[in-house]
């Protein structure tokens, strides 16, 4: 192939080199972030981290037990709110609504899932926190639900849509009422995709910070009621991470490690089991 001129060959080499550099630029931050979280996080690990409350700025020791508790509360509460709603909404869009209505609802779902997460926080601040006069775990969970409802609805809808029509017909032809056929046969056929969608949405909201600022707010103590402010791992990372105290920054890295492990574990499980 000596017909290829020098210039064309050089251009080709430049393409190879630049695109390889691009890949490198894409991978480097990932490697750097994961190793930073791993190294700094492991340094922060201690028994106290899991069992103690944070200490006042400047003093040594302390932990983020309250943030772990808070994240568990927020994620469970928002799951309890958003899983049923998102799941049922997905069923309506896929199984009951006429084509026009269904695509309208689907695009509304897209819009809701596209709003910035801090907006969800502002909204709940305005309609829940201000009227109630207090930041609370409930408000935080509601804000997270605003984010996860459309995710779960969309995942449910598309998992159901991929169940062949034949399966529904076979169920109905057995004389099974439609709602029972949907719940026990169609949903079951789509269960992999639905569960994967739900787990991924949990992983996503577990790492959300912005919607919690104006709702859950944060706290130095364990939560005793859903109507009190609580803290959460991502809040700890934000507040402690941007604080000038070394001990707090250390805890922020510890919290990051916990969060990254949780999120990564969920997505690995989802991948392994449901191939998503």
């Amino acid at each position: 192939m000596n017909k290829i001129s020098i210039k064309r060959r050089i251009l080709n080499v430049i393409f190879y080199v630049l695109s390889a550099i691009a890949l490198l630029l894409l991978v480097t931050p990932l490697v750097s972030i994961f190793s930073a979280v791993l190294i700094e996080g492991v340094k922060a690990l201690s028994w106290d981290m899991f069992t103690k409350l944070p200490q006042p700025p400047g003093s040594k020791g302390g932990g983020i037990a309250n943030a772990i508790q808070g994240t568990l509360i927020l994620v469970s509460l928002s799951s309890a709110i958003s899983i049923p709603i998102g799941f049922l909404a997905g069923i309506f869009m896929s199984e009951y609504s006429e084509n026009g209505l269904s695509s309208f609802l689907k695009s509304i779902t897209e819009i809701l899932s596209g709003i910035p997460s801090i907006i969800a926080g502002l909204f709940v601040f305005s309609v829940v926190v201000l009227p109630m006069g207090t930041f609370s775990a409930l408000a935080g969970a509601l804000a997270l639900s605003v984010l996860s409802i459309p995710l779960i609805a969309r995942a449910t809808e598309s998992a159901l849509a991929s169940v062949p029509r034949d399966i529904r017909e076979a169920a109905l032809a057995l004389g099974i009422p439609r709602w029972k056929a949907i719940i026990w046969i169609v949903v079951r056929a789509a269960s992999g995709g639905i569960i994967a969608g739900i787990m991924l949405s949990i992983a996503r909201v577990a790492g959300e910070t912005a919607p919690l600022l104006f709702t859950a707010f944060g706290s130095q103590y364990f939560a005793k009621s859903l109507l009190e402010p609580v803290t959460a791992l991502p809040l700890v990372i934000y507040v402690y991470g941007s604080s000038p105290w070394e001990e707090w920054v250390r805890l922020a890295w510890g919290a990051s490690l916990l969060l990254v492990i949780t999120v990564t574990m969920i997505s690995v499980i989802v991948k392994e089991r449901y191939g998503k």
């Binding site: 062949p164 034949d166 032809a173 079951r188 056929a189």
Partner: peptide, 15 residues
């Protein structure tokens, strides 16, 4: 439908 069963063109056991 309970009294009249139906078999389809393609086998469609419930997944």
């Amino acid at each position: 439908r309970r009294r009249v069963g139906m078999i389809f063109q393609r086998p469609n056991p419930f997944p």
